[in-house]
Design a protein around this nucleic acid. Structure first.
Lengths: 136, 136
DNA sequence: GACCAATCGGAACGATTTGGTCCGATTAAC
DNA sequence: GTTAATCGGACCAAATCGTTCCGATTGGTC
């Protein structure tokens, strides 16, 4: 019931990247310096986020990173899914079935919880997280 | 972003125990036979659930298990917290702070997501999960 | 045109948590 | 008092997560 540290770091990293969106170009080392995360860890996160289509990476010297989409169009759910795969509380949802699905009467109810969770995450755009202080 | 198998099994086990609530007494072996889970695994779950105050265990021969509270007063959130500890997506919530909380602008927003998730889980009582078929 | 420097991408290692199994302590019944 | 059945805790193996390192690619510079 806790998302992995990588997912947490990914959110922080994306939040830092969103602030650099104005310049359009930043690097993994830059983001690592700002977030305080280890550089290799950020590199790994950048790889996953790029593969998921959230970041646009440019290789070579003078290369860098930039958001593939506007910050307002990126939600926490997108970031979490990019790092941890599809949001599914149980294996019943994405996988075919449980290994013990004899009379699994709870299975029909998991999608409800799953959607509630995903909706909560999808309702928070990256722009809100990039704010320096909480809105309220 | 996925709860552990133990938590999933715990929900199934509690669901099975709720059906035996009428008799008031059942055993870990009984629940294991019905759910198809390994007996030792169910024993481990029973230990945790009892420690959390969700199950009442009676030792000795002829002993058994029974729900400590009415099924309607037990929610999925209770079961998950019993097995996995407090529901906290990030270490920032329960722990003192992140190890990299320099300018962690996302920290103020986690409790919102956390409460949304917990609310979704707390809104499903055990009685609903014990139904043979989905309500709709 | 060739060299060099900087960056991302993937692969390998180690640590931590999770899941499964076993044995002992406790208790009621006989 | 003995026996039998149960829960409770402790040990061990496995999988995943997290970190680190190395190689492939690309742009700038001479």
């Amino acid at each position: 019931m806790r998302l992995s540290n990588l997912a947490d770091y990914a959110v922080v990293t994306m939040s830092a990247a969103a602030r650099h969106c104005g310049g359009g170009r930043t690097s993994a080392a830059e983001l690592a310096a700002e977030t305080g995360l280890p550089v290799p860890t950020v590199q790994k996160l950048v790889s996953k986020l790029s593969a998921a289509g959230l970041l646009r990476s440019t290789r070579g010297s003078g290369g860098g990173l930039q958001l593939a989409r506007p910050a307002a169009a990126i939600s926490v759910a997108d970031i979490v899914e990019a790092v941890e795969g599809p949001i599914a509380l149980t294996a019943c949802i994405e996988g075919t079935d449980c290994t013990v699905s004899h009379d699994c009467s709870v299975r029909p109810h998991w999608p409800v919880v799953n959607q509630a969770l995903r909706g909560a995450l999808a309702g928070i755009p990256l722009t809100q997280l990039a704010l320096e202080k909480e809105p309220a």
